[in-house]
């Protein structure tokens, strides 16, 4: 005890033990935030997937207008900050009487933003499948979209999976942006809770751990798949 009490940084300052104790008391708060982040991530993922596959296939057509349209979508959202898109919908749209709740803004903005990245993954995935495959499908009377969904995409799936998983990791990380417009996610909870009681270190350390738990296994798995693919194709 005597020894412990001489370690002053355990008694006072940002790392003090009592600060961690108060974290334990407010654990349900963080648990709720954890679920909120997962919810937003799932919603955004579903949206990003739909948009990504749609625009990815569109950009692989021979129709110039369709290709141009999907280029605009991809380039615009890949080259402007997510936060501006969020600000615009949060602050801008209500001025013309469109008021969306924060969680919906999170799903919409993060989903549309990552849809642009997934579209690129899908595009290069389609490009990796030999042209003969779709020609054969077309000769069997498949339409363009049918060819894509039944023939090309299933074959490209294995190549696409690692980059898609990496996108999911980035997507989860980017949901933290809605903390800036006070969405009740992990980041906002850590920030708001700690600005009340000044327990910054436990709050942000714990928030970091929560994000890590979500992201690390996915990132690891993506890398594992990538290695496997490399081996399979380098034979």
């Amino acid at each position: 005890m005597l020894y412990l009490s001489t370690i002053s940084w355990l008694q006072e300052g940002p790392f003090a033990l009592y600060r961690w104790n108060s974290l334990k008391e407010d654990l349900p708060l963080f648990f709720h935030a954890f679920l909120y982040t997962i919810g937003i991530s799932l919603g955004a993922l579903a949206l990003a997937f739909v948009l990504g596959i749609f625009f990815g296939i569109l950009s692989a057509t021979k129709n110039k207008g369709a290709v141009f349209l999907s280029r605009i979508y991809v380039e615009f959202f890949q080259n402007t900050p997510l936060l501006i898109q969020i600000f615009f919908i949060y602050y801008g749209l209500p001025l013309i009487n469109i008021v969306l709740p924060v969680y919906l803004i999170g799903i919409l903005c993060v989903g549309i933003y990552h849809g642009a990245y997934i579209a690129e993954v899908v595009r290069s995935g389609i490009g990796s499948v030999p042209r003969g495959q779709s020609e054969a499908a077309a000769s069997q009377g498949f339409s363009y979209w049918e060819t894509m969904f039944y023939v090309v995409l299933p074959q490209a799936w294995r190549m696409m999976l690692p980059p898609l998983t990496n996108q999911l990791v980035n997507l989860i990380k980017n949901t933290s942006t809605i903390a800036i417009i006070s969405g009740a996610d992990i980041m906002f909870t850590a920030n708001s809770w700690s600005s009340m009681n000044l327990n910054y270190v436990p709050a942000f350390a714990f928030a970091g751990i929560l994000y890590f738990i979500l992201c690390f296994p996915l990132a690891k798995w993506a890398r594992h798949m990538e290695e496997k693919n490399k081996k399979a194709y380098s034979r």
Binding site: Y91, P94, L95
Partner: peptide, 10 residues
């Protein structure tokens, strides 16, 4: 940001 939030009825 707060002023903008007021303008936009947030």
């Amino acid at each position: 940001e707060l002023k903008t939030a007021l303008t936009s009825k947030r």
